[in-house]
Structure formats: C-alpha cells, structure tokens
Amino acid sequence: MADSIEKVSIVISKGSLEGVYPGLIMGNGARMEGIEANLFFTFFGLDVIRKNRIDKIKVGTVGNPGMHMPTWIGAIPGMSWLATKMMSRQMDKIDIPPVREFIEMIGDSGGKLYACQATVDMYGLSMDDFVPQVEKVLTVGEFYELSAGGEIIFT
C-alpha cells in the first residue's frame, strides 16, 4: 500500500455545533481507520468537553452566511434553538450522534481528549469541570510533543 497516515492531532477551536462536528467526525473517522487520534480542545471549543456545556452546543445563526438567512432573522429569539434541533435531527438520520454520545464514542474507541492550558487558565477551570473522557490539560508545547510524527489538523 502507498503512504498511510498513522496519527492525527485535531484542534477544535470553535464552540458552535457546525464548528465542532467536523473535528469530531475526523477524529472518530481516524479511529475507524485504525489511525491514532488526539483531540485538543481550545478556546470556545472547550465547551465540547465541559460537563455543563456539552449538551448546550448550538448552531450559530447570526453572522453565519452558510445559514442563508438574513442576520436579523437569525437573531430572533429561539432561532438558534430551532436550527440546532433541525440540524441534530438530520444528523441523527445519517447516524451522526449528539455531541455527548460522540465524545463517549471517541473515548471508547481509544481516541485521546485534551484541554488547552491557556483556555483553562483563562476561564479558571479544573479537571473537575470536564467530562471523564478528558485525559489531561496540555500546554501548546506538550501538544506539539504529543503530535510529533503525525498530522495536525486545525478546525
């Protein structure tokens, strides 16, 4: 076989539903191919691994040209909730799980989850704030060390 990827490190930096799914799909997809996967959550992406936020990740309906709706409509109360509900239903149909289940899947598959030290400091968080799948808090230097020899993907 030709060259193959053995390891990926995926940075998830966005906190919207459409911002976090690509990284989760790529991380889970890597494990499905037998590729070692590290997921590094930073800035708003940290919401994905925060116990009290993991179930509250929503589609961004304001200032999101991909929604194809005027920004003022996106700003109507309940719009983000509705868009999130609709997208989640579509995704469930094609077997893409909700965020919490996805994180459990990735954890069970042997994918490793890490929180970004700078963001943890910024919000004043500790390991107690995270879902159990999170291995540890990493500095950017440790992240690079961990990623050595593999591909780094920023989302």
């Binding site: 889970n28 499905m32 077997d95 893409i96 799980p97 289940e101 899947m105 069970d108 598959s109």
Partner: peptide, 13 residues
C-alpha cells in the same frame, strides 16, 4: 460504527 456499537451486541470499547 454507531449502529455496530449499539446493535451488534458488542460495545464500541
């Protein structure tokens, strides 16, 4: 993979 974990009788881990 999700369906496999849920319905094959063998969990993902």
């Amino acid at each position: 993979m999700r369906a496999l974990g849920k319905t094959s009788g063998v969990a993902i881990k």
